[in-house]
Design a protein around this nucleic acid. Structure first.
Lengths: 342, 342
DNA sequence: GTGAAAGCGCTAACAC
DNA sequence: GTGTTAGCGCTTTCAC
């Protein structure tokens, strides 16, 4: 294979090949200003023949826009984030933007660092699933200094930023209310780390459902999972591996649900007889498991798409106050929550 | 919230604030050349105070390196690719690189387009799961013109490019041999699109196992799935929804396995009694399903990490011939393949 | 050790 | 319509 040292053809190269000035070639290539048909043709022919590819970096430097948007998620391996990423990619690519991706591992320092790196690379905007409910000042400052930020998944009512979230409290409440309705009184809950803002809302929904049913809130029934399936597994074991175990479980995220399923299997318990289960966030095999898993489904891809859309609008000049999009969740009752209990 | 128009502090801004020349400030900031301690301190203090952030774009323009690598996968929503992406990200971020991500949807035209877009953005290198076994000339030309390319997941023996793949044929053969060993004679196979190079190898492994056992190859038992779970489901239905259905099924990819599980459930069949199942590629709930699913597991994250490593080596100047890394697979026998049959 | 000046590849005034 | 010229923000000679 020949080594073509055609590392970087520039506008000037094309210009001389076409016998016009650099500016004319640039105009023809960039499709702006006015160029005579003859000149344009010569330029395009030369570009084509030589295999010219525009250096977007140089263009971005002068234009002040890279057509690149940064996405910061906890972990792209998490199917939730993967689907969000896909949604974002779909929404922005129609406008010619590309995704710069970073994982934060749900760690605030890493998140900060990722945001810094992305900003240094001059992303036009940022979409962030922030791991902190507290300190998003670095995101607000990005936004106010010209790099719009859209927050996703985790509500942040105090932040002056566009956000796309789902109805966490309502979704969780529906899940728990459903468990109560079929007869459960002791319902365990496996939550995300409390720093993650949606975790709070889901726990709130859990409490609201208990309240409404006149049930006591019992701290013992709340276990904090972590960002991995293994964390969820451990949490569930803690919750279930004892005599007075809850009769039902609400898992507040997809990985928590995976972990719980794994723990339940390990303990040899049967769903829903030994323990009923409702999870937040649907997943590919939920319908296939025996029994199928009851879930609060959320429009994951749409979260990404909406975030992309809001961001593109900001980039197009939208100046209004923060928009907060709340997407609906839906309780999908399948077998794991069980029929009515005596 | 105040709008700080501090959109872009430049080296010159810092230089004047520190009372030194632009060049000195740049040296202090960029940590190169020689700067007196006094000057350095003044510059760093000013940079810190004013909140200077280096414009990596401008730096990249002159350095000719963006510290960015492009990753092209079929679909980031596919857990396989998500894990690969994570592996790549982990491998390259230690060197300060960032991931530019693009989905090809397993379409060659989209893949080409993505590669073009990524190259225009001056990525330092590319990692690609190519959807074509035939035409990778555009990737070879990228490589020979200075943008190294590492191919992943799909073997491409004719391409003059580094590749990271797994032992597809051996893995598939082990899976099918195992099914034969426990007594199956009619084994259906759900493959990926034939354009995808790994699909060929896995099918080859399937045939090899049959051959070795003296079993006839029956075209009727081969069904081509597609890149989605739904495709796998449809394929499986075609295979199983008839009287002379195979007694066992080998699904050649994770989404195919998902689809098969869904179809089997829909048909009301029991695993492994009505139909035994072995899938290529492990997945989170494989152990949790009843019965747990027997799989050929592959080191997915490691594929990404190896690819990242190979690419970094090329970027560091490695000049040798194409390296072809083959990672081992492992047959993990669980319940779905059944015990010995009469 | 430091500054002045050139240049990465492109866009954008501004003349002609 | 076209060419000349001046930058975008940075790195990098090259004098001093």
């Amino acid at each position: 294979m020949a080594i073509l040292p055609s590392v970087g053809l520039t506008v000037s190269d094309i210009a001389s090949a076409a016998g016009v000035s650099q500016a004319t070639a640039a105009r023809a290539l960039g499709n702006y200003g006015s160029v005579s048909d003859g000149a344009r043709e010569k330029v395009l022919e030369a570009a084509n023949r030589l295999g010219y590819r525009r250096n977007e970096l140089a263009a971005a430097l002068v234009a002040g826009s890279t057509q690149t948007i940064g996405l910061v998620v906890g972990d792209i391996e998490n199917p939730f984030f993967a689907t969000v990423a896909r949604g974002v990619a779909d929404a922005i690519e129609v406008e010619g933007h590309t995704l710069l991706l970073a994982n934060s591992d749900e760690d605030l320092e890493r998140e900060r660092h990722a945001v810094e790196a992305l900003r240094s690379r001059q992303v036009d905007g940022l979409i962030v699933a922030s791991s902190s409910a507290e300190d998003v000042s670095f995101l607000e400052s990005a936004s106010s200094s010209g790099t719009p930020v859209v927050l996703i998944d985790r509500p942040m009512p105090d932040a002056e930023l566009d956000t796309v979230t789902v109805e966490n409290a309502a979704g969780a409440e529906a899940a728990v209310a459903h468990l109560i309705e079929v007869g459960h009184r002791r319902i365990g809950v496996l939550t995300d780390q409390p720093e993650i803002a949606s975790a709070g809302e889901r726990l709130e929904g859990y409490r609201a459902a208990l309240d409404r049913a006149g049930l006591e809130f019992d701290e013992e029934l709340v276990v904090e999972g972590g960002p991995s399936q293994e964390d969820g597994r451990r949490g569930t074991l803690k919750l279930l591996d004892r005599p007075d175990r809850p009769t039902a479980l609400f898992t507040a995220s997809n990985l928590a649900t995976y972990g719980a399923l794994s723990a339940i299997a390990a303990l040899g318990l049967t769903i829903p007889d030994d323990v009923a289960l409702v999870g937040f966030d649907d997943f590919p095999l939920a319908e296939v498991l025996a029994p199928p898993i009851t879930v609060v489904s959320q429009p994951v891809s749409q979260i990404g798409q909406e975030a992309g859309r809001l961001l593109l609008e900001r980039l197009a000049g939208e100046q209004g106050p923060p928009r907060r999009v709340r997407l609906k969740t839906e309780l999908t009752v399948r077998g794991s929550s069980g029929g009515p209990r005596s």
